[in-house]
């Protein structure tokens, strides 16, 4: 083992160096930038300490972006995992055509992000879109609903599109996990006379706790930083209804030439995401303590 240590470091070094140079080094630069008032039109940096932070913290924009980011992340992660799990349960049954169904259900995930976003913008189109076409034909709505053009429906619509794109990955992960739930435990539960639902909650879910936790964390990080979908669907509009951290940062830095504020939003973005993950960890710890106590 000892003589292998140098080899271990050799193997690990490319990953560490690449991530260090391309991710951490720029990130430190971003944190430093956020302490200076810099913008494209005024390139000489002035040290202003935390005053940009104070300014942003008290702005309405920031409050809206935080609220949207939390709703967006929570909504997509929750639905993606629930829908993903439900599909996994269904596809786990020994049914005819299972192999084909398993690969077909993965299609949305394989579709390039820009393509999926363009497709959903078209799906939601008030006049030409397929969704409103169904609503009109089924007489559920007279003229169709402008999903992406109302502040009340834009974010939920974007969440639906993102869930469609992302749930298949969760399905595969859970499908894999289901195959490793101990068959004996399930049989024992059946002999005990447990119904389908009881079986699910008493045996399957506890057995997959670790896996669910991991998948939730991974999808949280990916969703929080998911840029393409909202950018193509609404660019963060109407008003600020779908503006989340990545779209707001892009809008500030490249749409309005305000690099300093973009950097500050970037730092906040990392903070909020860390908070979200900490919150999640706390909830889990609480739930575990409760289940251990019971």
């Amino acid at each position: 083992m000892k003589r292998g240590r140098w080899l271990v470091f050799l193997f690990v070094s490319p990953a560490v160096i690449l991530v260090g140079v391309l991710m951490y080094y720029p990130m430190i630069g971003t944190v430093i930038d956020s302490l200076y008032a810099t913008s494209f039109i005024d390139p000489t940096p002035k040290f202003v300490g935390l005053s940009i932070y104070r300014e942003i913290l008290t702005s309405i924009d920031f409050a809206e972006v935080v609220r949207n980011s939390c709703i967006w992340t929570a909504g997509v992660v929750l639905l993606q995992n629930v829908v993903g799990f439900a599909f996994a349960l269904l596809l786990d049954q020994r049914l005819p055509g299972r192999a084909l169904m398993r690969s077909l259900v993965l299609l949305p995930w394989v579709l390039p992000g820009v393509v999926a976003a363009i497709l959903w913008r078209f799906m939601f189109d008030p006049q030409l879109g397929l969704i409103n076409s169904f609503l009109i034909r089924l007489h559920l709505s007279g003229q169709g609903i402008p999903w992406l053009a109302q502040t009340s429906t834009a974010l939920p619509a974007a969440i639906v599109a993102a869930v469609w794109k992302g749930f298949p990955f969760s399905t595969v992960v859970y499908l894999a996990g289901l195959q490793h739930v101990d068959a004996e435990q399930i049989e024992a539960a059946i002999i005990d006379g447990a119904g389908q639902l009881r079986r699910l909650f008493d045996v399957v879910l506890p057995a997959m706790r670790e896996l669910i936790a991991l998948n939730v964390i991974l999808t949280t990080i990916l969703t929080f930083n998911y840029f393409d979908m909202i950018w193509v669907l609404t660019r963060g509009g109407p008003e600020n209804a779908t503006n989340i951290f990545p779209t707001r940062i892009f809008e500030l830095a490249f749409g309005e030439f305000r690099f300093g504020e973009g950097a500050t939003y970037g730092v906040f973005s990392i903070l909020v995401l860390t908070l979200l993950l900490a919150l999640y960890a706390a909830i889990r710890r609480g739930a575990e303590r409760k289940s251990a106590g019971a």
Binding site: D125, L128, A149, G237, P238, E239
Partner: peptide, 21 residues
């Protein structure tokens, strides 16, 4: 105007204009 003004771009109107609606 067609519904959905708040997310419509000038390009989105092209199809409607071309199909006579």
């Amino acid at each position: 105007a067609p519904r959905g003004i708040l997310n419509a771009a000038s390009g989105d109107m092209r199809q409607l204009f071309l199909n006579g609606s």
